[in-house]
Design a protein around this nucleic acid. Structure first.
Lengths: 251, 251
DNA sequence: CGCAGGATTGATTTCGATCAACTGGAGTGG
DNA sequence: CCACTCCAGTTGATCGAAATCAATCCTGCG
């Protein structure tokens, strides 16, 4: 249980132009006018840099900003009242961190870098103001939030009634899609998280993750070397994903 | 698998005043000024009435409105590509239906009445416009959406690593809280959904639900008669809720 | 009264957690 | 440079929780 050592060390020496944040690669600004994007960029803060195990924010810190991942990756973890350590999300480049904090006064979990990671900050106060004047942004923003609700709900509800095999297939398929959407190869990628973190995220033990991966490897579905994954048969993986669960039934 | 027979029959004969919707009992308007609430009420449509198994909207229908439950209750069900029937939520009086549709062009699931149910409609178009002019409403609204993300995420992620016992304890505890928050007794309530629907919602089979309930009954935790539930020992129920799960581990 | 669908109870099986031992690579220091 | 340690990952054996299969038992309802 490696607790994050430091918090949010801004690389303030490199006073990067806001546009370096490449907000345009985020889903939020799609469909906005150039002027609107410019306005949005204006509120974005310079890049911040995190090293492995450093936290972008800690659970319970007052909510002030959303963050866009520029490079690297993070996990979000929540510690429950019963001292359970739950990995609730992973964030890849181009994705938005902190959406689930908007309603709260404070962040509901800690965002911890899985490797060297850069992010840019979007002060929520200003984003909120901007929403008032830019209807398209507001709509985009609502859509983003809402899809988050929807995805999580369906995803987890499906996971709930899936075997370990299928859960992992879903995980890799989803990861593949996320890489594809951002313009990376959907077939080959490196995931910075450990087996334990994947297991935690999916509600499985390390041992089970390891065993299932071994089986996949031996079936020629994936080629795995440490944390480098190579999807050999995406088609079959996708079919596995759809294998119907076993639990629960009618309505 | 009882498929909803009809769709959305408005009781247009009873042309109720908007205020009858009692929007004030929803969480949304809390903290708004009287004027703001009035404006919000102005966009609310008259009551609609649904009989058991009638749908408020069907999965795939174009998204137009949110709905506030006035009396009765509903389930939301999603049919996946693999023809699985998933109960994704239950809605009680005072709660908001359709939040997870906001981002989409269409409703991601069908809302079906579990019993005779009345709702009032909030056309989203107008709510959205209103958000532009009422910052407090906008904030409220964001908060609502975001909490939905957060709750779902945590709830399901916990469920994922809980035994059947604990899942059901969570379910009843949550229900109890929801009734309490709306001013009803947190100890005695009738739930219109079947065992099968509860099981589906929690990712358990009917048999397991039945067995666990039997155990609870015999342990003097709940008193159960059909669909009437009487929580005898809320304290113990709450403690059960916190019993740490078994799956997954470190990070 | 009889029937249908929901609910309960029992027997068996299977999946994945748990416990435990071991491997291998990266980092450390003598 | 090699021994040692440490931790992530793998592999094996066992056990328990819940699904599955299979009868009933209610209970409201036409």
């Amino acid at each position: 249980m490696t607790s994050p050592s430091n918090v949010l060390r801004f690389a303030s020496q490199q006073n990067v132009d806001c546009r370096a944040c490449h907000l345009s690669s985020l889903c939020l600004p799609q469909g906005l006018s150039l002027e609107e994007i410019a306005e949005l960029n204006d509120i974005a803060q310079p890049l911040a840099m995190l090293r492995k195990n450093e936290a972008l924010f800690l659970q319970g810190m007052p909510f002030t900003s959303l963050f866009a991942v520029r490079s690297g990756s993070l996990k979000q973890v929540t510690t429950t009242e019963t001292d359970e350590y739950l990995v609730t999300s992973f964030f890849l480049p181009g994705e938005m961190v902190g959406l689930d904090a908007i309603g709260e006064k404070s962040y509901p979990g800690s965002a911890v870098a899985l490797e060297t990671t850069t992010v840019c900050e979007l002060p929520f106060e200003r984003l909120d103001d901007l929403c008032a004047s830019l209807p398209e942004l507001r709509r985009r923003f609502h859509r983003n939030l809402s899809q988050e609700v929807h995805n999580e709900r369906l995803m987890l509800r499906l996971l709930l009634r899936r075997t370990a095999d299928v859960r992992l297939a879903c995980f890799f398929f989803a990861m593949s899609e996320r890489f594809r959407r951002r313009g990376y190869s959907p077939y080959r990628f490196r995931l910075a998280m450990s087996r334990g973190e994947i297991g935690n995220y999916l509600g499985l033990t390390v041992e089970t993750v390891s065993r299932v991966l071994a089986r996949y490897q031996q079936q020629g579905l994936l080629d795995i070397h440490g944390r480098d994954f190579h999807i050999l048969d995406l088609e079959r993986l996708s079919r596995l994903t759809e294998a119907s669960g076993r639990r629960g039934a009618a309505g």
